[in-house]
Design a protein around this nucleic acid. Structure first.
Length: 486
DNA sequence: TGAAATGTTGGGGCG
DNA sequence: ACGCCCCAACATTTC
């Protein structure tokens, strides 16, 4: 056992040095009490149960850990297995005086962390958790009746904005003295097995830069190139009009506080801040998702609105498969699903459109969509994913009403008017004229022939009729309406 | 952060 | 000049 006492900073969804309250406090304690600081990451593949994140997110984690380790000059201790065992083993190997971490909010993380806190405190270890991933703690925001808000606007405007200002970001602590004890056994990043055996991630590699520096660069890029046109450009999927920070926020390569204040700062002295307010409210939606998950922990598996339990899903496997693989025959849907598959990302506007299509036109259970997104998205964030799917399905808190059904043709024509986005991910439609790019099945056969498209061969016929499936969805919804009126 | 159906209005063609 | 019709444009209602 190393003679020097140790303070563990347990990294989880906070893979950064800047604005990291647990790390800052661990460093402060280490300096006052002459302790050794142990930056630790534990990979526990079983912790999330049925809600484990998929391959894309694991690819991101791999590279984010590489970045964190490099920023720590290699001094990042890696272990795998259940957190309790890994931490207990460390208390055997080292004279652990304190364990600090930043809070996570998924139900099993809360349960695990609560147990760990009790367990290690009873052994005389100083265990502390900190707020780092949310601007407002879910338990601090309550309505006048003292219960949880269920509607976004009052939650955000009255609950969040009128309560205390988010914490100002902290600088990175000085870690120049940080050195792991000699001979401590540990895994390499490769041994964690986060990368798939088949290298399907090559295109992701070209588009994304995981890690704290990449996150910071992307934030800067957003402020320089898109922030002042956000409200107008954010809905255009062929344009980089959004900040695309979701994967970084998921793993905490930067904090929402850093984003909040950086963007606000960029708007200082400007009169028109509609772009700022719209952007900040999107961070508000992220908060709201975590808030809902905290107060209603059953929502990953059950409808928030229990009346939806009577809804009869069709769940046709071949329709689900066509949706997943981007072969529905409806261009904006297929482009979105292919963007997801190829790049690990999908533009938010398109997420809403493909979500509506799966749940309404194909009448597949939102949980099937949620699972697919969780498997494919780099930003696979349980809270946001679940809240958004329930929103689009109509079963969620402050959800879109069920009858609000997107028409993918109109959405395409409205937000991808030149078909640029569709053509990027459905190159077989590149020569189809603008007039028919979102509805090739309506094009006269000579026009399709000139475009080199033979429907059913080069590109699928639509798997459903949009008008009929819309009406069928509304009919199916009658059951829910009848049940809720009863 | 919807779309379709239905209702209303007003301009222009035309007998 | 007038009434009538048509229909686009816009507003409201409904799902």
């Amino acid at each position: 056992m190393s003679s020097k006492g140790a303070v563990i900073c347990w990294f989880r969804r906070d893979l950064r040095l800047r604005d990291n309250p647990a790390l800052t406090r661990a460093c402060a304690l280490a300096s006052v009490e002459n302790l050794r600081i142990i930056p630790l990451f534990i990979l526990d593949d079983g912790d999330a149960g049925d809600f484990a994140t998929g391959g894309a997110s694991r690819w991101w984690l791999h590279h984010s850990l590489v970045s964190l380790r490099d920023n720590l000059n290699g001094q990042l201790l890696l272990r795998s297995g259940a957190a309790k065992q890994a931490l207990s083993a460390l208390t055997e190997e080292l004279d652990v005086r304190a364990i600090f971490w930043n809070r996570c909010y998924e139900p099993w993380q809360i349960a695990r962390d609560t147990e760990l806190k009790t367990h290690f405190k009873s052994s005389g270890i100083d265990v502390q958790s900190f707020q780092a991933s949310l601007l407002w703690e879910p338990w601090d925001i309550k309505n006048k009746q003292g219960s949880a808000y269920k509607v976004f606007t009052p939650y955000y405007r009255k609950g969040c904005l009128l309560s205390k200002q988010p914490r100002l970001p902290k600088a990175a602590p000085d870690l120049s003295d940080c050195a792991l004890p000699e001979g401590l056994k540990q895994n390499t990043i490769d041994e964690l097995g986060l990368l798939p055996s088949i290298p399907w991630y090559e295109q992701m590699q070209n588009e994304w830069q995981p890690g704290e520096q990449g996150a910071s660069d992307r934030l800067t890029q957003y402020i320089e190139s898109a922030a002042f046109a956000y409200r107008d450009q954010r809905n255009i999927p062929s344009v980089v009009g959004t900040s695309r920070l979701s994967p970084s926020l998921h793993y905490g390569e930067l904090s929402p506080n850093q984003v909040w204040y950086a963007v606000k700062h960029a708007f200082e002295g400007r009169e028109d801040d509609k772009h700022l307010d719209t952007y900040l409210s999107e961070l508000g939606w992220r908060e709201f998702s975590y808030y809902l998950l905290y107060h209603f922990p059953h929502i990953p598996s059950d409808s928030f609105n229990a009346k939806f339990d009577v809804f009869k899903w069709e769940n046709a496997p071949e329709k689900l498969r066509a949706w997943q693989t981007g072969n529905t025959g409806i261009p904006i849907i297929d482009a979105g699903m292919r963007e997801l598959w190829q790049t690990g990302y999908m533009h938010n506007r398109v997420r809403m459109v493909v979500g509506s299509f799966l749940v309404k036109n194909l009448r597949c259970d939102w949980r099937l969509g949620e699972a697919w997104f969780r498997d494919c998205l780099l930003d696979a964030d349980l809270a946001a994913n679940v809240a958004s799917w329930q929103w689009v399905a109509g079963s969620g808190a402050d959800a879109a009403p069920y009858f609000r059904i997107f028409n993918p043709v109109l959405q395409g024509e409205k937000f991808d008017s030149d078909g640029e986005y569709v053509k990027k991910y459905c190159p077989e439609l590149a020569e189809v004229p603008k007039k028919f790019i979102h509805k090739p099945w309506e094009a006269p056969s000579d026009i399709l022939k000139d475009a080199g498209v033979w429907l059913g061969t080069d590109y699928p016929h639509p798997i459903v009729d949009l008008k009929e499936s819309r009406e069928a969805a509304l009919d199916a919804y009658e059951v829910v309406k009848a049940a809720s009126n009863a």
